[in-house]
């Protein structure tokens, strides 16, 4: 589904990614862990289409499409979704209207029949209910005045509404309480049930109590230095990232 091949990325004069290789198949959950500044968020942004970066080498394909030359919206049409680490506030646009507009845009781009406003409304309320999202937030401007936790819940809410084929969760679990983590679990589960894939970027192995990934990768200084299963995450917790890096060099 997603194939990243030897991706080298420059920001300013610094190499942030230095040869990333990653394959994600339908229905898989991948977790990328790594210390601060290892390039995790950059990788997420590049897949989603932010253009502040210079791609020096390598390719990313999604379901056979070379996506590196595509705009963010075109990638969204293909089914890529990014849950932002720092969701931005959009003053004046209610969450309800925003999600409705996004769904209509996606349906139109995919040449699907438009779904009626009442159907969207029904789905919005059901999803908000399932995820325990406060209904008042729907009427408020997107993320404006939302608490940190509410912003992250909102990302999962949007993800569930838009049903992407590949969701990238960029530290969505950071700073969340147990109840909120449970919402991420629900969101991820909804996607996996439909054979969609999830790429989770996180600092903590706490999420593993809820989610069982197919793969765990360690990203260190712009490279995936080790991949494994759930146990790798537990090992990182014990030994720290540096240990893996030193061992790799030796």
């Amino acid at each position: 589904m997603l194939i990243i091949n030897d991706l080298h990325v420059l920001v300013g004069e610094k190499y942030i990614l230095q040869g990333i290789n990653l394959i994600i198949n339908p229905g898989e959950i991948h977790i990328i862990m790594g210390p601060n500044g290892s390039g995790k968020s950059t990788l997420a942004y590049i897949i989603a289409g932010k253009n502040d970066y210079k791609i020096i080498k390598g390719s990313i394909s999604f379901e056979g499409h070379n996506i590196l030359k595509m705009s963010p919206e075109e990638r969204a049409y293909l089914g890529i979704f990014l849950s932002f680490q720092y969701p931005v506030e959009i003053p004046g646009v209610s969450l309800y209207n925003f999600i409705k507009t996004a769904i209509n845009a996606l349906y139109k781009a995919r040449n699907l029949n438009q779904i009626s406003t009442s159907e969207i409304l029904k789905k919005i309320h059901k999803t908000a209910n399932d995820l325990g999202l406060d209904k008042d937030l729907l009427k408020r401007s997107v993320n404006e005045g939302f608490s940190g936790g509410e912003k992250k819940r909102n990302e999962i809410f949007q993800m569930t509404m838009l049903e992407p084929k590949l969701a990238i969760l960029d530290e969505t679990d950071s700073g969340l309480d147990i109840d909120a983590i449970n919402i991420i679990y629900k969101g991820v589960n909804n996607l996996i049930k439909k054979n969609n894939s999830v790429l989770i970027i996180t600092h903590y192995q706490r999420l593993l109590e809820y989610i069982t990934p197919n793969y765990v990768h360690i990203l260190y200084k712009g490279k995936i230095i080790k991949s494994g299963n759930k146990n790798l995450a537990l090992e990182i917790e014990k030994k720290g990232f540096n240990w893996f890096f030193k061992n790799k060099i030796q």
Binding site: G49, K50, E73, A76, I90, F98, A102, L106, Q158
Partner: peptide, 9 residues
Amino acid sequence: FYIRSRGLS
């Protein structure tokens, strides 16, 4: 970027 990542042109 946030808005476009949700599918709006």
